[in-house]
């Protein structure tokens, strides 16, 4: 199996000024999810006798991640030269880097592994865009991968905790959540990776820049509630503040022992129709 793994080495733990939204310092690194993607790639390559190609679209600093991948056992590494500064424009990105990543893959591999989301943009759109570019099938947010013969099965999260199992054709793009730990590279491999060659591809296409109006500290959005229906302003205010709602007055019981408290809780749940295991 020819496997590519996309490592973003994007900004992490970006400091945002809580008053102005100004961006402070950040540093670059792979996410746990990207390390998991790399580990999956290495395991699958071992199982299928395949090759692992680590790719990134980023500035020279991003090569550090590629060298880590080489040290851990990747066979080849390519960087597409793309500036990704720490500014609202880059952070607003939505997979604009996917096109650049495709350039690193002159031949479509059987499988492209990605992290579930990068740590800066963090929307997980890149893998789906990669799939679109490559005409590949996709499975996003996989929590588990298994080989079924020569086909890959991906377990992924659906709504409300359901799991979907997908059988992947070739080519396919899979993004995985973190959890699987990247193996520790041997010391000689770390040293060898420092001298290994990393292919460098120029990228001149104008980046798809978002038209950023402002960047502010995030504030939770006011949630919408039904408008009050009272016929006087006074009543509407009372309604909004909940003063008119009929409410069983709160019951406070205790102090109780643990057993009494558990009885009290379970009886309450039963009364309200919350049975154990619905």
């Amino acid at each position: 199996m020819r496997i590519a793994v996309a490592l973003s080495r994007s900004w992490q733990r970006v400091e945002v000024d809580p008053l102005t939204g100004a961006l402070g310092s950040g540093h670059r690194g792979e996410s746990a999810a990207e390390h998991a993607a790399l580990e999956h790639a290495l395991r699958l390559a071992e199982l299928t006798g395949g090759q692992v190609h680590a790719i990134t679209a980023g500035p020279a600093e991003a090569e550090e991640g590629l060298r880590e991948a080489l040290a851990a056992g990747a066979d080849r590494a390519t960087r597409v030269d793309l500036d990704t500064p720490l500014d609202p424009n880059s952070l607003a990105h939505n997979g604009a880097t996917a096109a650049a990543l495709v350039a690193a893959l002159p031949e479509t591999p059987d499988l492209v592994l990605c992290g579930d989301r990068s740590t800066d943009g963090g929307t997980g759109a890149t893998p789906a865009l990669l799939a679109a570019h490559l005409g590949a099938a996709q499975a996003l947010g996989a929590v588990d991968l298994e080989l079924d013969g020569d086909r890959l099965l991906a377990h992924r999260r659906l709504d409300r905790g359901a799991r979907e199992i997908l059988r992947l054709p070739s080519p396919a793009v899979v993004s995985v959540e973190g959890g699987l730990r990247l193996r520790r590279a041997a010391l000689p491999a770390v040293l060898a990776a420092q001298d290994a060659e990393i292919e460098l591809l120029p990228w001149t296409a104008a980046p798809a820049r978002a038209d950023v109006v402002s960047a502010r500290p995030r504030r939770p959005r006011a949630r919408e509630h039904p408008a009050p229906s009272g016929d006087s302003a006074h009543h509407r205010v009372l309604e909004l503040t909940g003063a008119l709602v009929e409410r069983t007055p709160p019951t406070v019981v205790g102090p109780l022992s643990a057993a009494e408290a558990a009885d009290e809780l379970l009886a309450y749940l039963r009364r309200r129709g919350y049975g154990v295991r619905p």
Binding site: G21, A92, V213, A215
Partner: peptide
Amino acid sequence: TLHAGAIRCGTDTADLSRADDSLEIRV
């Protein structure tokens, strides 16, 4: 154009949540 991860979508702009939900970028 894709604007993923919005917390608000207006008629001409959207507010995107970024940087571990600490930043709100209007595009």
